[in-house]
Design a binder for these strands. Structure first.
Lengths: 185, 185
DNA sequence: CGCGAAATGTTCGCATGCGAAACATTCGTC
DNA sequence: GACGAATGTTTCGCATGCGAACATTTCGCG
């Protein structure tokens, strides 16, 4: 059966009446968790003179060390043009520095300054912290089950997205299609 | 425990270190699903001359009829000041109209114009459509299970958030507080 | 070697998105 | 029935957030 593609002119498959309330509720919950977490992160960040995305960047650089701007963009799921602006303002605040790579002169390495590193250690929360906290209150079974189904969902979305983008390369990849973001060395 | 989390259960609970990778992965998946869905919604909306939020507003007004600006803000989980701008641009495009309430002159009713209503019928997708589509591919059991745990998560987050706002009652409330947003008549 | 494609960042214009303050209107209360 | 609190909306300043166009640099491949 030809996948109903979101980007094709054809309408996607209609949603059966029976499950629609559940689907609506799941979507509602995801939107709620994301937006509420972002709001809280922003609030906490403000207490340290940071914006939400700036807190995310600081924590990311603390965890992973120096990153190129592109790499940083992937990690925080934003476009390069967005991150350029964020880094501009952080550089102005003395939180990070830009350094052209000697190896590949297209690349710019973003690095925490001592001030930025101090802030990273000082701020006690991660992005989406509130979701993390509540997750710790769930049973291990629930957490694992949640992860199992969310992973299915994410892979399904990724498959659809890749499908729309262009003819997929032969599905002979060793593992399953990439998880949203595979952890790496 | 790094933090006095109000929700941690019993002593035999696992070390947080053990579940941290799962927590990280769940958070990662939620962020992925939200941001990817938003990106796709925006892309589809653009084909109809709309922005992502404008599509959301059009669909909301089609489903619920006229709404006050405040009500609309709640529904799309944005602040009034944000929605004022969105409505400004939609009004300029002839998609909606503003009408002062005769009953309460503080209130502004937002209403779809015929052009806006036509667009609403024409656009075949809902916000977060891709998540909806993939959810339909899951088993009913998985969907229900996902909803069950996400609801727990959302209620836990809501409890924590409300908790911050007011004086701290012990976190042992028997009936969970309101769901993030109950469907209404 | 050489040239076009691809990768990396930046700039630009526009649309959110938010909080604080300003404003208008209504409500509660004495 | 007046006044202060509460509610609804807008304005303002700033920080994302994105796509398109562009400059620079590297890569691929004959």
């Amino acid at each position: 059966m030809p996948e109903p593609t979101l980007l094709s002119p054809k309408p996607p498959a209609p949603i059966p009446e029976a499950v629609k309330p559940d689907v609506d509720a799941v979507v509602e919950a995801i939107v709620y968790l994301y937006t509420e977490s972002r709001r809280l992160t922003k609030e906490v960040a403000a207490r340290y003179g940071l914006t939400g995305p700036q807190l995310t960047v600081v924590k990311m650089l603390e965890a992973l060390g120096d990153l190129s701007l592109s790499r940083l963009s992937e990690k925080i799921r934003a476009q390069n043009s967005t991150v350029t602006g964020i880094v501009d303002r952080m550089e102005r605040e003395g939180l990070v520095t830009r350094a052209r790579s000697a190896v590949d002169r297209r690349v710019v390495h973003i690095r925490l300054t001592p001030k930025g590193a101090r802030l990273a250690r000082e701020v006690p929360v991660e992005p989406m912290e509130i979701v993390r906290q509540v997750l710790l209150g769930l049973s291990e079974d629930d957490t694992r089950e949640l992860l199992r189904i969310l992973t299915k969902l994410a892979r399904g979305v990724k498959a659809l997205v890749d499908h729309e983008a262009g003819p997929p390369p032969p599905p002979d990849a060793p593992g399953a299609p990439d998880a949203p973001d595979a952890p790496e060395p």
